[in-house]
């Protein structure tokens, strides 16, 4: 008998006391549509905490990002170019990683050397790049979280991991109030990275310290 059969057999015997039958739901057709299962769990928790206008939601995102030591810059579409250029200058970056589908105009104000995100780049090469600029898929106000999904304007997961400085541009329309709204917008088939502030650890005396393996400086440019 294979271990697969052995384990499944043990599970079925272990559950002999539980009434079975109709209750077992069929495989779902697609995420989120699963009536028999939806009835099995009481979901009377809140979709979001509090009642906010879109502007207040943006403020909350900015506040929560800053609370976990991300550096937040608020601007409008007209000034985005100079803000991004200014951040690269003040960081003293000489090179910047650019995902293939990034809006080219965002970097138009900067003459920093651009490095394309390509499959051939080795981790060691990425380690020599100073900064990375990306867009995002979704931002979550209640938790101060940016989610990347590997779309062309965000690039491979490793480009936002190895360089020490990450500039992420968030547009107002991408901001959702809470985790339930974020999951609804995201495609589970894509590799996702949820980022809430720069890399941190609580491993020394259970006290939070920023800056371990991921980018130690996380700058979020919030465009409204």
């Amino acid at each position: 008998m294979s271990s697969r059969e052995r384990i499944l057999g043990r599970v079925r015997r272990a559950l002999a006391d539980v009434p079975r039958g109709d209750e077992t739901p069929p495989a779902p057709e697609r995420p989120g549509r699963y009536p028999p299962y939806e009835r099995a769990v009481t979901r009377d928790y809140l979709r979001e905490h509090g009642d906010r206008t879109p502007a207040q939601t943006l403020d909350l995102l900015a506040g929560n990002l800053a609370d976990y030591r991300a550096v937040v810059h608020r601007t409008d579409a007209g000034h985005l170019v100079e803000v991004v250029a200014g951040l690269l200058v003040s960081r003293g970056s000489s090179s910047v990683l650019v995902p293939p589908g990034l809006d080219e105009s965002w970097l138009a104000g900067s003459d920093v050397r651009r490095i394309a995100d390509r499959a051939e780049n080795t981790p060691h090469e990425l380690d020599r790049v100073d900064s990375v600029v990306t867009a995002c898929a979704v931002a979550v106000a209640e938790t101060g979280t940016i989610v990347l999904d590997g779309s062309p304007d965000q690039g491979r997961r490793r480009i936002t991991l190895v360089p020490d400085h990450h500039i992420c541009v968030v547009r107002a329309a991408q901001v959702v109030p809470s985790v339930p709204y974020a999951l609804e917008r995201l495609d589970p088939a894509r590799p996702l990275t949820w980022i809430s502030g720069p890399s941190a650890t609580s491993d020394i005396e259970l006290d939070r310290v920023e800056g371990v393996h991921g980018p130690r400086v996380m700058e979020v440019v919030l465009v409204d």
Binding site: Y68, V140, L192, T193, W194, I195, S199, G214
Partner: peptide
Amino acid sequence: ERMNPYTSTWT
């Protein structure tokens, strides 16, 4: 924390 610094999901 409201959210931990990094969550990775892959399929």
